[in-house]
Design a protein around this nucleic acid. Structure first.
Lengths: 113, 113
DNA sequence: ATTCTATGTATAGGAAACTTATGTATATTT
DNA sequence: AAATATACATAAGTTTCCTATACATAGAAT
């Protein structure tokens, strides 16, 4: 995704959050959206994205719907019902993760004096 | 480290930050410290920690110093000079990462209207 | 005309990080 | 005597991701 290893493990959560927000999206659209939101800092590669989408579909998190636009194929993905529930869990995990990382990086001073 | 995949890729940064803060630490101490700081949410496994420490040492990020305490071995690690510089970069990357993830999860409303 | 860039999906091969399980060894608690 | 805590270590396997490649259409540039 970038030079930093930190994004490892966050792709599924990113995909699910974007789909929760936008209803349905296709793969290429996801890569562009992420690029815009992160101001070019995070580029999702196809080699990561498409296998991830296929896996989420196989797990019943996503549904797919094929369309033809300008004579080109698009596969629109959207969250299933269980996918919506799972997204809530993932986002809670992400919040915990961010909070924990901030605790590690910016530790509170010891108040026992 | 835990059930969440999100921590993947953050171990090196965590180690380096803790060493920057505490001067020198040994492996087991790192696992316990992280457990306390994250209130039990993040458990670093030995299978992840020790190979990571060895790799950081091989890369010249860490120096090691062996001590015997209570007849048990301890390997104290501390940042080298280049390790200190690299830690600054890693922490900046972590801040970017957290900022980007927050932009994705908590997008700003569109202000063009 | 042809080549490059953008749009759009897909997979094979490999690297890297992590988990699980196991091993060794001493000290303390039950 | 057995379990737990302290302390380090590695082998085998899984997962995630990147690089490279492939196919296909459309538009822009040369």
């Amino acid at each position: 995704m970038k030079n930093s290893q930190l994004y490892k493990g966050s792709l599924n959560t990113i995909i699910m959050k974007l789909l929760e927000e936008n209803g349905k999206m296709y793969g290429y659209e996801i890569t562009q959206k992420v690029k815009i939101i992160t101001q070019g800092e995070l580029n999702i590669t196809e080699g990561a994205l498409y296998p991830a989408l296929h896996k989420l579909e196989a797990e019943g998190i996503l549904d797919v719907e094929i369309e033809r636009v300008d004579n080109r194929m698009r596969k629109y993905y959207k969250l299933t019902e269980s996918g919506q529930k799972e997204t809530i869990n993932r986002l809670a995990e992400l919040e915990d993760f961010i909070r924990n990382m901030q605790s590690l990086v910016n530790p509170k001073p010891n108040l026992e004096f």
